[in-house]
Simulated scan of single mutants.
Amino acid sequence: MDRRAGAHGAAVVAGAAGVLTLLTGCAWFGDDGTDSTQVLELSVGDCVVTPDEVQAELTDVTTVACGTAHQMEVYALVPDALDGPETYPGADALAAFADGACAERFADYVGVDYRDSDLFFTYLLPSTRGWSEGDTTVTCLATTTGQPLTASVAGSER
């Protein structure tokens, strides 16, 4: 499900619970040039292939070289969301935080404000369990609703 605000608003990858969430998982190298990367190990600049099935909780994602067709690119990691309160703040509070935090960081990576971009953004949020285990990071991803990306969006001014 996508939630968009205006022509160039934020696209939110959603699962059954309304958000994709982060959990601990495994990582391994694939023979087809893809890596299965633990969501907690994603780095700025990683290019990500959208999972085949919508999932409420992710443990790992498929990453590829940015010259390979992909749908998303990590452009920011925002640690200590909401100043990392001890108790899980809830998906709605985290989504509201991520909307602002990811919008704010978009231009620094892409080179143009998201409202002037042909790209959108989405994010991965910590799950309740992840939060209790110390994961308070929001992962911001640039994405497109059209053709797959075939290069990095860093500095692209798209």
Rank of each mutant, 00 (worst) to 15 (best):
V54G: 11
T145I: 11
V110L: 04
L23N: 15
A98I: 08
G111T: 01
L58I: 01
T150Q: 07
W131C: 07
P85K: 11
E41I: 04
A107L: 01
T136C: 00
R129H: 07
Y75H: 00
T50S: 14
T143E: 06
V54E: 15
L119Q: 04
T62M: 11
A76S: 14
Q55M: 13
L42C: 07
F29I: 12
D92Q: 14
R158G: 15
V19Q: 12
W131N: 02
A65Q: 13
R115Y: 02
D118F: 07
V78I: 11
V112H: 01
D118L: 07
A56R: 07
E41C: 10
A27D: 10
E73L: 04
M72I: 06
G30Q: 15
D80Y: 05
D99E: 05
T59I: 05
F121R: 06
V13M: 06
T144L: 02
L119F: 05
D118Q: 04
C66V: 09
E86L: 11
A27E: 14
R4T: 14
V54Y: 12
T150A: 04
Q55I: 06
A14P: 02
A95R: 11
R105V: 02
W28M: 00
T122K: 09
Q71S: 05
A93C: 10
A151Y: 11
V19M: 10
L124E: 06
S43Q: 15
L22R: 07
G6I: 08
G111N: 02
A56T: 09
V48S: 03
V44Y: 08
Y75E: 02
E53F: 05
G100L: 03
Y114A: 08
V78R: 11
R4F: 08
T87P: 03
D35E: 14
C47R: 01
D35T: 15
A11D: 15
V44R: 10
G100T: 01
A93D: 14
D108P: 06
F120P: 01
R105L: 12
C66G: 08
T68G: 02
L20I: 07
G146E: 12
E104N: 10
F106C: 03
A7D: 14
V112L: 06
S117A: 12
D108S: 15
T136K: 08
V78G: 05
S152H: 06
Q147A: 15
A76L: 09
D52N: 08
H70Q: 08
T150P: 00
V48F: 03
T139N: 05
G155K: 03
T68V: 15
G84T: 08
T50D: 13
C102F: 00
V44G: 09
A27N: 08
T21W: 00
T128N: 07
D32K: 03
V74N: 13
E157V: 12
F97W: 01
G146M: 09
C47E: 01
S132I: 02
Y114E: 14
Q71C: 01
V138C: 04
G130P: 01
S117F: 03
R158K: 11
F121L: 04
V54D: 15
T143N: 08
G6P: 12
R115T: 13
L141G: 07
